[in-house]
């Protein structure tokens, strides 16, 4: 029997939630989703559709908007509050068409000097027949390559579930912010538990072992900054949560704006290059 590293929740009220508690918060249906962030943070949002190849993916949406008068491109995984909304948004799981749309719009942003802000909240890329036939692997790979060289500032906000490759595909940027109770992982705790524990119910142990919370990821250097949430979690006060996210984005934009595009791209590479170099 493996030793369980999960700390028992103590009696102290201010004790930080354990990894699995954060997973539950990150998946809370009442948590602010893309449309809340768009409505509360930006002005003048105009959605743009389609990858110009086969489809308009609903799991990943994008459009231009302004932030304090600065025009920006907003991209994000699309989740909803109700089952109906989630069905329409494919539960925030993007198809290859979604990633190709994201690249198409980001190329426009680069051409016209618009910073890009991405909102990451997905269980993962959609595992479907057509998704594979249209090259889910290729679309994610291309997106990683594409954003690593994009000559405009890219700010990433992990707002809920950062589900492996499907999340990472729009999470290569200059500044990666993460909400206090969001999670970001190479595999879902349930998936990991099913494989390494041979028991999906061991997800809390897997969540702890994988180190998927914002404080852990900050220590590992995978993210740059934690955005605090209202007491008890973002679901308790969505407007306040959006305001905190807005302030973090505004600050990041101000930091990145003076940096020349080539320097920005060089730093973005250096940031990735330092990850997991232990030798």
């Amino acid at each position: 029997m493996a030793k369980v590293v999960r700390k028992k929740a103590g009696p102290a009220k201010r004790k930080a939630p354990c990894a699995m508690e954060r997973v539950k918060l990150a998946r809370d249906a009442k948590r602010p989703h893309l449309r809340d962030f768009i409505a509360n943070i930006f002005d003048d949002f105009e959605e743009l559709h389609g990858d110009r190849l086969v489809n308009d993916d609903r799991g990943l949406v994008g459009g231009f908007a302004t932030l304090d008068g600065t025009p920006v491109l907003v991209l994000g995984h699309n989740k909803g509050e109700t089952v109906e909304e989630n069905m329409a948004a494919n539960f925030g799981m993007a198809n290859p068409d979604g990633y190709r749309k994201a690249m198409r719009l980001a190329k426009l942003a680069e051409r016209f000097g618009n910073p890009v802000v991405t909102f990451v909240d997905t269980p993962g890329a959609y595992p479907g027949r057509e998704a594979e036939e249209r090259g889910q692997a290729e679309a994610i790979a291309k997106s990683l390559e594409f954003f690593s060289t994009l000559k405009t500032p890219v700010i990433v906000v992990v707002t809920g579930e950062g589900g492996s490759g499907g999340a990472l595909a729009i999470a290569v940027g200059d500044k990666v912010l993460m909400l206090e109770n969001a999670v970001y992982s190479v595999i879902s705790p349930e998936g990991c538990a099913g494989i390494l524990w041979r028991d999906g119910s061991k997800a809390p142990e897997a969540a702890e072992a994988l180190k998927i919370t914002a404080p852990d990821l900050l220590k590992l250097g995978a993210i740059d900054e934690i955005v605090p949430e209202p007491p008890g979690g973002a679901q308790n006060d969505r407007a306040a949560a959006c305001a905190l996210v807005r302030a973090a984005i505004v600050k990041a934009l101000a930091e990145l704006a003076p940096i020349a595009a080539d320097e920005l791209v060089a730093r973005r590479y250096a940031r990735l290059r330092a990850m997991g170099n232990f030798y």
């Binding site: 994610i140 790979a141 990683l144 390559e145 690593s148 060289t149 492996s164 490759g165 990472l168 999470a171 290569v172 970001y184 992982s185 190479v186 595999i187 990991c192 494989i195 390494l196 994988l210 180190k211 998927i212 990821l217 590992l220 995978a222 973005r268 590479y269 990735l272 290059r273 990850m275 997991g276």
Partner: peptide
């Protein structure tokens, strides 16, 4: 695929390698 025993930094190798490949092509 990714090596889950190395957690998020395993996932980040996808981005790191793709960025390095981009530079080979450039």
């Amino acid at each position: 695929g990714a090596r889950m025993h190395e957690g998020i930094l395993s996932l980040m190798q996808m981005a790191k390698t793709s960025a390095a490949i981009a530079r080979v092509k450039e």
